[in-house]
Design a binder for these strands. Sequence first.
DNA 1: TGCTGTGAATCGCTTCACAGCC
DNA 2: GGCTGTGAAGCGATTCACAGCA
Lengths: 254, 254
Amino acid sequence: MATGRTHRPATRSRGIPEATVARLPLYLRALTALSERSVPTVSSEELAAAAGVNSAKLRKDFSYLGSYGTRGVGYDVEYLVYQISRELGLTQDWPVVIVGIGNLGAALANYGGFASRGFRVAALIDADPAMAGKPVAGIPVQHSDDLEKIIEDNGVSIGVIATPAGAAQPVCDRLVAAGVTSILNFAPTVLSVPDGVDVRKVDLSIELQILAFHEQRKAGEESAAGDGAHPAAAARKEAADQGPDGDIPAVMPA
Amino acid sequence: MATGRTHRPATRSRGIPEATVARLPLYLRALTALSERSVPTVSSEELAAAAGVNSAKLRKDFSYLGSYGTRGVGYDVEYLVYQISRELGLTQDWPVVIVGIGNLGAALANYGGFASRGFRVAALIDADPAMAGKPVAGIPVQHSDDLEKIIEDNGVSIGVIATPAGAAQPVCDRLVAAGVTSILNFAPTVLSVPDGVDVRKVDLSIELQILAFHEQRKAGEESAAGDGAHPAAAARKEAADQGPDGDIPAVMPA
DNA sequence: TGCTGTGAATCGCTTCACAGCC
DNA sequence: GGCTGTGAAGCGATTCACAGCA
């Protein structure tokens, strides 16, 4: 779920649960793979397995989009690809800017998944004058002095921040002031934005810490497993092998 | 998300809710910043603001750890840093390997947040023989032939996969076979792992698609004139035009 | 007085189980 | 017979509101 909610609870004509929205890209990817293999139809069971969720959840998710399946048969792959793409807004072109062209920014610029799914890297922006003009992934880096102009000229509404932590908030402010209303933040900082702006964050260090927590728990169990009589140890053991199963993507609201 | 799971619900006595675990790193970061500024105590309200959550949630989260605050005063910053670190398992050293040293892998290797929080990059591994021996972030890249030996020699239990999608599952299988039980996956693939192995995934393309969904909704929302709540930055809203049904997918395969 | 800690109410997501249709 | 679509039950997480303590 993204934070920058326009704080009206239910203005929507068709409200799709946030958790469902977060899974649609997963389904879309699995469906695209099937489509490439020219598979015509797929059952909820099969598709769920490919997407790594359970089939009841998948059917419920799809029921929010409409009745796109056929009982006794399954779902038409091509049709479903189109419906989900449309729902996600991927039938249009989204120009994106990436700010901060270090290793990470370069990795993002080179990431193939961009172009293939309705996103277009409209510009790369960096504060280092030495970077200006240098092409990364075939796109010349532009200096951050021109940020506002770049946003406007390209009609950008989605920005990716891959700067060091200290630069993230100022960059964010400028992006928002220039008209960006969705931000994907890779910097390890909590960004503050006005209402109406969505921020999603991706934070390596947080993910690792969550893994460490579970890892520690696993380790504690092995040693406790022996002295079976202890109730607390037994309790911990039970929780053991349940995957974190986040489902909530590896991302938190800011 | 872990593919294989025993569907055993979390324990309730000693178990900390998963949602709480996911926020602890956030609190820890905010507390560390306070600690660096030598702030001795902090209230739930202040800390919540710094971490970007609401204060009731924060207090509830902390209540799962124990009663570490003082009524009328707040929380002792240093003490809380320690308690959370301990709970997350960060008082010990976690050796981590990164597999796939492209732009992204290099970015991860260079990421400072690693060392500062109990994680140590024990090795960098890549399948390209030309990379072998080349130092990245001061660490020589090793060839993936030696993966198993590297895992064992370093006692690694956490692996980071930053390979292309196609290589991810084989790499994952080898990591798991060699003893890794926690995986952070950056490749756009659903990994399947045996029970007892945790997988968390970070997927740029999914995040962008979620943003696009909300962006699209904002654009379509002009009609909601109702009561005052007016989204800020009403600059560019025309760009997104809800594609009417009828046409064939404009989505390209990956 | 001020702020924590927490039962109780609430919300939203997941799962179950089966009716409905092919 | 097989598989979708969905009301209803179940369950975890969030929020409320206030009791309890420095």
